[in-house]
Write a protein that binds this DNA or RNA. Structure first.
Lengths: 216, 216
DNA sequence: CGAACGAGTCAACGGGGTGTCGAGTTACGG
DNA sequence: CCGTAACTCGACACCCCGTTGACTCGTTCG
């Protein structure tokens, strides 16, 4: 389904069949979106803003993307790919002990999204209005849940973790916590954990939830 | 600040100074909003829909509320008041053991929002677009966090819970989990925990996070 | 009783956003 | 040098928002 690897390799999101010199334009639109998102929320950015930012008129924008959401979706594809890559690297890395594995995974998760603050906040906003954004996130979320559930089951089978609720349910709850906590710390509204304390706190909750006893 | 007790006691949200026979209209608008939210998302409901549903024209709507968000805010005030009341009742109730206390609090929290599914989902959507909704939620969230943090500190002081991250940070993380998990189970998109399993799973995570060892 | 006042009502307007259509304008391969 | 496909935009139709100004009541009070 998703193969968003190279810059504009995610064909199908835009409208144009294939190659042309106007790839520049496409990139300019994406860059403009990223730039504008740094200064105002998604809802305050119009298609016209994106078009003018890229030096084209509004109708021309529609030649490259079907809507404002499509632009965001393309941007998100990149971050998702990055997050998946980082996560895979972590899961494959040498497990110097199971507990440290969780720590590294959470830190990677946190770092990926912190590195794209504006985009993360925009994505959350768009989730309310775009079914496609919802679907993309559901897909990503599901992948993480499955990975975590598998890991939890492995720890239980190995005797390292006690029995408890279905591993999948636990994974959903904990991943949900990650999502909300990190979003809050990035968005700035409402009570949030200080950026530097996010990972330690999350690690603590994950470890106790999975293994029972608090870490040494 | 907030005193939303009776039906339209939350004065200040609407525009009209005070009483008049047109209180009917105001209630009709609120009822229409609640009804329409059962069938479509907030974003798909226009001011005109609300006005027509209440038997008035669009301009007249503005005589009663300053915006669509104001209607939602009034609706939310009720639920918040209900949630606070339920929560207070739980915290004051006879503590048949600390662990059962948490269980009851989480069940109450869950029940309150499940009882207003459409509204809960709409509120989450509005949070992206309305600063007032964000502020209201931040206020409510903060209240819960403080209660929980206090309870955690009490358990630690009593020697029943081990040391760990700052109680406030722990409370934020766990309350965030509640919010996201319950929202997911109500909204229907993305992976979610089955409605009946939500409370048990949350209880488990809370207990291990606070006390370390899993429950008997 | 009949002015006067305030609650309640809405047609009409101005402004901003969206998405589309059709008529251009390049630019390059034959 | 010509056709075809990439690319561009003026103009249109539509939807929604929030406001204005005038109009209709009912009540109250001189």
């Amino acid at each position: 389904m998703s193969d968003g690897a190279g810059p504009s390799a995610a064909a199908g999101r835009g409208r144009r069949p294939a190659r042309a010199r106007g790839d520049d334009r496409e990139l300019q639109i994406l860059a403009t979106a990223e730039r504008l998102l740094e200064e105002r929320p998604l809802g305050a950015i119009s298609v016209d803003d994106l078009a003018r930012g890229a030096g084209i008129s509004r109708p021309t924008f529609y030649f490259y993307f079907t809507s404002k959401d499509a632009v965001l979706l393309t941007l998100l594809d990149r971050v998702v790919a990055e997050a998946d890559a980082t996560m895979s690297a972590v899961f494959d890395g040498s497990p110097t002990g199971p507990r440290e594995g969780w720590q590294r995974a959470l830190a990677a998760y946190h770092e990926t999204f912190s590195g794209h603050r504006a985009l993360t906040v925009a994505w959350a906003e768009a989730r309310s209005t775009s079914a496609e954004v919802r679907a993309l996130w559901a897909e990503v979320f599901e992948r993480w849940v499955q990975r975590c559930a598998t890991a939890i089951e492995a720890e239980r089978a190995r005797g390292a973790a006690p029995a408890g609720p279905p591993a999948r349910d636990l994974a959903i709850a904990l991943t949900s916590m990650n999502e909300r906590v990190i979003y809050a710390s990035l968005s700035g509204d409402g009570p949030a954990i200080a950026a530097d304390d996010v990972v330690p706190v999350l690690v603590r909750v994950w470890l106790t939830a999975v293994y029972g006893t608090p870490p040494d």
